[in-house]
Computed example of a mutant assay.
Amino acid sequence: MEDQVRGKEIWKHNITEPNYGCHVVAVSCFSFFLVSKLVVFLTPLVAQTEKSSWKWKNISVSFIHSVLSSIWAFLCFYERPDMAEDLITIFTPLSHSLAAFSVGYFLYDLIELLVHQRTRQSLELIGHHVVIISCFMVAVLTRHYVGYAVVALIVEINSIFLHFRQLLQICGTSKFNPWYRLNSLINLATFIVCRILLLCWMTRWIVINKDAVPLLFYTMGSVGLAVMVGMNIILFYRLLRSDFISVKDTADSSSKKVD
C-alpha cells in the first residue's frame, strides 16, 4: 500500500514539474541534421556515388549516435545504480535527457529514410524507428519507464560494431581483412549479449511487472519487444550467413582450387 501511494505521489510530482524533454528532442534532431552535413566532408573517394555517399552519411551519423548513447547509458546507471532496481519511477535529468536525445536521433533518421530511402528494404528500419519513437516518447513525456528506456539503449553497444562493419563494406574492405574479421567477431559477441540476452531480460521484466504497468503502455512495450525480437533474429541470421558461413565457403572453395 505504501509503495502504491509513493508511486502515485511520484507520478503526480513528475507530471506537474516542467518537462524539458520535447526541447531536447528538437535540439537533438537538429543537431544530428547538422552532423550529417559535416560527415559529408569525410566521405571516402570510393563512396562518391550518389547512393554510396548518402549511405556513408547515414551510417556515419548512426555510428556517432551509437557511441554517444551507449557511453551515456552507462553513465546514467553509474550516477544512479538504484535505477536498475526501479525502472519505472526512478530517473535523473541525465537519463531523461538520454531518452529524449535518442528520440531526436531516431526522428532525424526516420525523416532521412522517408525522404531518401523509400524502398522495400527500408520498411524494416522505418517500422523499427516508429516503434522506438512511440515507446521512448512515453518515457520522455511521463518521466516514467526512463530506466527501461536506458536499458534498451545498451543495445547501441552492439550497434557501434554493426555500423562500423557497414562503413568498412562501403570502403570496399575485404571480409578476409584482419580488422574486418576482428570487428565481425566482436560484433557477433556483442550481438548475443547486448541484443539477444538483453531483449530476453527486458521481456522477462515486462511480464513480471505486468500489474505495475498500465495496459496501454504494457501493450506498446510488448509490441515493441516483439518487433525488436523478430528484426534481431533476421539480422543475426544475415550476419552469420554473410560474415561467417559464406566466408567459410569461399575460403574452402579457394583452398580446393589451390589443391
Rank of each mutant, 00 (worst) to 15 (best):
T203E: 02
L198R: 04
C200R: 06
C171L: 15
I170Q: 13
Y148D: 13
A189L: 15
R204M: 06
V150Q: 03
I160D: 00
S159K: 05
I192N: 03
I154K: 00
L199A: 09
K175A: 02
V146S: 11
K210T: 01
L199C: 05
Y148K: 11
V150I: 12
Y145E: 08
W201A: 09
W201G: 00
Y180A: 14
L199I: 06
K210A: 08
C171N: 15
R195Q: 01
N177G: 04
P178Y: 01
I170H: 09
N158E: 03
E156G: 08
W205Y: 12
L167A: 01
F191M: 01
L185H: 07
G172N: 02
C171Q: 15
L167T: 01
S184H: 10
V193M: 04
Y148F: 15
L197Y: 09
R195E: 03
W179Q: 08
L182I: 06
R143N: 13
V207T: 08
L185W: 11
N187T: 01
L188I: 05
A152R: 09
S184Y: 06
N183Q: 04
Y180E: 12
L168Q: 14
W205N: 03
W205C: 04
T173A: 15
I206S: 01
W201Q: 09
F191Q: 00
T173S: 12
L185P: 09
L185V: 10
I157D: 03
F161M: 08
I154A: 04
M202R: 07
R181C: 10
I192R: 06
K210E: 10
R181K: 12
C194L: 07
K210N: 02
Y145A: 08
L167R: 06
F191P: 00
T203M: 05
T142K: 14
W205S: 04
Y180Q: 07
Y180P: 08
M202V: 11
L199H: 12
V207Q: 05
L182S: 06
L153Y: 12
R181Q: 12
W205Q: 07
F164K: 00
G147C: 15
A189R: 08
F164E: 02
E156K: 08
A149M: 15
N209C: 05
T203A: 07
F176G: 03
L182R: 09
S174Y: 06
N209Q: 10
A149T: 14
S184C: 09
V151W: 15
I206K: 02
K175S: 07
R204L: 07
L162F: 10
I160A: 00
A149S: 15
